[in-house]
């Protein structure tokens, strides 16, 4: 009886989220996988699943197209680099911030954390448009930069609608997702370990590199995943702030669904994006584990 009730309680609590995930994640993913094997409709969308003779209209055509047109693969590679640079920049910027918050007086921590997540209180698109103003040709920043360039006799450069604008905004938007997991990790560190390392002859850099950093790797991985995966598929930022050459894979997928209305090909690109992100996350975890093991054995 207890087991039954226990089982029932378990289903009551985990049931609704499970149903939600099946309904809004698993089913759409299956629909997308199915769509990738179908034929685009004459006026967009999908052609009927069954041909006039009643046979199923399934084809590998969209996959063949992806494999034979190098353009799409190149955009994947470009998106990968944007996401990677974003992740590294976020890591470098977030680490000192997270570490500062973790070391600050307990009274100030909640306030500092609040400041980190404060941007979430305003709309994502509005924040991107704000960067249009900050980076705009008549704004102080562009004037200052071009003033300096002009003094050296160089041509003025546009800040807006450039790879620079896209990257700056990517880093800006994703920074809190790196700060929070890093903080959560660093906050738990035992200060005595640093005292011990110092006592054993480690200088400040060695204490960071040998003790703090390796112990913070779980936080680094969590932050990197939270930044890299959304940055890899983003479309709004390059759409608004990027130039004609800054289209990323997210933009191409969006175009396939909304502009070209080629749903099967859009599905193929989405599936490749998902698989790549999963593969990269897996690879990072594997490298991470090896790295930790190497440090652990004392041969780092």
């Amino acid at each position: 009886m207890t087991t039954l009730r226990h089982g029932f309680g378990k289903w009551i609590t985990s049931g609704p989220p499970l149903v939600f995930l099946v309904a809004f994640f698993a089913v759409p993913t299956l629909i997308m996988v199915l769509a990738s094997f179908r034929t685009p409709g004459e006026f967009g969308g999908l052609a009927p699943l069954r041909n006039e003779d009643g046979s199923l209209d399934l084809t590998l055509e969209s996959y063949v197209r992806f494999a034979t047109e190098p353009l799409y693969w190149q955009i994947f590679v470009k998106s990968f680099w944007y996401a990677l640079v974003t992740t590294l920049a976020c890591l470098v910027l977030a680490y000192p911030v997270a570490s500062l918050i973790a070391q600050s007086d307990r009274r100030w921590r909640s306030l500092l954390l609040l400041l980190v997540i404060l941007p979430f209180w305003s709309n994502f698109l509005i924040r991107i448009y704000a960067w249009m103003i900050i980076l705009g040709p008549n704004a102080a920043l562009a004037r200052a930069v071009n003033g300096v360039l002009g003094a050296f006799g160089a041509e003025p450069v546009p800040l807006l609608f450039s790879a620079f604008a896209v990257l700056v905004c990517l880093v800006y938007v994703h920074l809190p997702f790196m700060v929070l997991p890093l903080y959560a990790n660093l906050e738990k560190h035992d200060r005595t370990l640093l005292d011990a390392a110092q006592d054993l002859g480690a200088n400040a850099w060695q204490r960071f590199w040998r003790i703090t950093f390796p112990l913070s790797l779980p936080g680094v991985y969590a932050g990197a995943a939270l930044v890299f995966i959304p940055a890899f598929g983003i479309f709004a930022i390059p759409d608004i702030l990027g130039g004609p050459n800054d289209s990323l894979i997210g933009n191409v997928i969006k175009q396939q669904f909304l502009d070209s209305r080629d749903w099967p090909f859009g599905s193929v690109l989405s599936i490749v994006l998902t698989l790549l992100a999963l593969a990269l996350a897996g690879l990072a975890a594997w490298i991470g584990k090896r790295g930790v093991a190497r440090l652990a054995s004392g041969h780092a």
């Binding site: 035992d190 370990l193 005292d195 011990a196 930790v292 440090l295 652990a296 054995s297 004392g298």
Partner: peptide
């Protein structure tokens, strides 16, 4: 204050 990510040897 042993370093938890290192083995005995590493420590």
């Amino acid at each position: 204050a042993l370093f938890p990510h290192m083995t005995v040897q590493g420590n």
